[in-house]
């Protein structure tokens, strides 16, 4: 199988999504910056979306996978908005967004 056909197959899609998942997990674990952790979470969510869309085409040829990805994108948007609001609030309290500093339940 040459590389062009591989890129157009489900294996190509799943390989890209696996790499995105691994890099997202790596970013979540290694970043100290709270926004860096959020970037990793976005990568993981995109990996899941690619999987749903790829199976929607290559396996069932039906629309359900695309609908799940649509809901996933909307949930990710809501999650990013709330997370950034929390980060801004935390920055106002502590003058830093280092995740190691977020160790108290109260302020």
């Amino acid at each position: 199988m040459n590389v062009l056909d591989f890129a157009n197959s489900i294996e190509g899609y799943l390989l890209v999504s696996s790499v995105l998942l691994i890099l997202g997990i790596f970013a979540v674990l290694t970043r100290k910056n709270a926004i860096g952790i959020l970037l990793g979470v976005e990568l993981i969510l995109n990996a899941a979306g690619i999987n749903f869309v790829a199976f929607s085409k290559y396996h069932s040829a039906a629309l359900e996978g695309q609908l799940v990805t649509l809901f996933l994108i909307l949930i990710a948007a809501a999650e990013a908005a709330v997370a950034l609001a929390i980060i801004l609030r935390f920055y106002r309290l502590k003058q830093t967004i280092d995740a190691d500093e977020a160790s108290l339940l109260r302020h």
Binding site: N8, Y13, V16, G49, I50, V53, A54, S56, K57, Y58, Q66, T69, L70, I73
Partner: peptide, 11 residues
């Protein structure tokens, strides 16, 4: 672009 090629134009 990957979504486009998988037939998910709206997505």
């Amino acid at each position: 672009v990957m979504y486009l090629f998988a037939g998910a134009d709206f997505l």
